[in-house]
């Protein structure tokens, strides 16, 4: 019971951190807006300048919400993969899921021009981006899974993920050779990753996808706990392995696929956040870990985004670079300190 109390207080702290990082994220940017104006602007009041209201509601708020959605979604999909593959190094990026999504988007944006300009403008809408990257993610995940069923070696799975990365890079290179500059630019900007410039409509689409993925994840938490013991034990405790694996795959592809479609391939959040969370919540119980990972992912993403849009400067750095700069050292630090990553 003591443990439950500790977890509860951790969750309260995380909620406060989330609120704080959300406020900081919204109040910082190239235009400085005083914090009291930010709060009144967000909660339906009016700000002393019309432009501030516009900046807050149509630019910063959507970006902060996108950060929360991508952070939580990627972190949870990382957790799902680590448990499903029973490999602490698994994550949407390492296993090539982001590469798969990139491939889908590359084929859509670049392939459209390679096939002839006719489809170009028609095809590349928000929804087709989502569908293309979700299909890409799904296919890679199926391939990875097929390998997992055949080879029981987890190291092989990671190598396969890396290979998918190379294949994607190669296909993208071939496609970009044949496509025009405009489309190439569109793809490259997408691949930098960006949380900004999302319309409320696309945020609605992203939220629906994220909620669906997260709901599936929460429904799977009992099965995920059983999978911690390995497939044979899980089966002996009444778990239907195929159905569970299928549900987890669907959840992961929806999460990683939709997020990558809207925000671009964002590295390391999926890998690092579950490990960071396990440092604080010393448990592998998914009923505790899933919400905790969700909150930590949102907080980390808000912080990364705050760093990406350096205050009072007009430039915004690619979010993908920031998460890698923060995520990679965290994983190295955890490995050096603990000598072994637990999951």
């Amino acid at each position: 019971m003591e443990r439950a109390f500790i977890y509860r207080s951790y969750f309260i702290v995380l909620f406060i951190l989330l609120a704080a990082s959300f406020l900081i994220n919204v109040s910082l940017g190239s235009v400085s807006i005083p914090i009291d104006e930010v709060i009144s602007g967000l909660f339906g009041g009016t700000t002393s300048k019309e432009s501030w209201q516009y900046i807050l509601i149509d630019y910063r708020l959507p970006k902060a919400i996108t950060a929360i959605l991508t952070g939580s979604g990627l972190a949870v999909s990382g957790l799902l993969m680590q448990t499903m593959f029973r490999n602490p190094l698994a994550g949407p990026f390492v296993l090539g899921l982001s590469s798969g999504a990139s491939l889908g988007v590359a084929v859509l944006i670049l392939g459209a021009s390679a096939l002839g300009g006719f489809f170009g403008g028609v095809l590349v809408s928000q929804w087709s981006l989502v569908i293309a990257s979700a299909i890409g993610t799904f296919l890679v995940l199926l391939a990875v899974l097929a390998v997992t069923f055949k080879i029981k070696d987890t190291m092989a799975i990671l190598i396969i993920g890396l290979m998918f990365g190379s294949v994607t890079a190669a296909v993208v290179a071939v496609l970009s050779y044949f496509s025009n500059a405009e489309q190439l630019q569109q793809y490259i900007f997408w691949s930098f990753g960006s949380l900004g410039n999302q319309s409320w409509k696309s945020i609605l689409i992203l939220s629906i996808c994220c909620f669906a993925g997260l709901l599936l994840s929460f429904l799977s938490s009992k099965s995920l706990n059983a999978l911690l013991l390995g497939e044979n034990y899980a089966k002996s405790m009444g778990l239907r392995i195929k159905r569970t694996t299928f549900l987890i795959i669907i959840a992961t592809s929806i999460l990683a696929g939709s997020i990558t479609a809207f925000a671009g391939p964002i590295a390391f959040v999926g890998l690092a956040v579950p490990h960071l969370t396990r440092q604080v919540f010393t448990t592998s119980n998914h009923l505790v870990l899933l919400p905790a990972v969700l909150l930590c992912g949102s907080i980390l993403m808000l912080i990364c985004d705050t760093l990406a849009q350096l205050p009072f400067v007009e430039y915004t750095l690619p979010i993908n670079a920031i998460t890698s700069l923060i995520g990679a050292p965290v994983v190295i630090w955890l490995l050096v300190r603990k000598r072994k990553l637990l999951f």
Partner: peptide, 18 residues
């Protein structure tokens, strides 16, 4: 078991899953 990052109580409790 694949993960040993469980407490003994958590692991034994998993036996109640059916």
């Amino acid at each position: 078991p694949a993960s040993k990052n469980l407490t003994v109580l958590e692991l034994v409790s998993l036996g109640r899953q059916p």
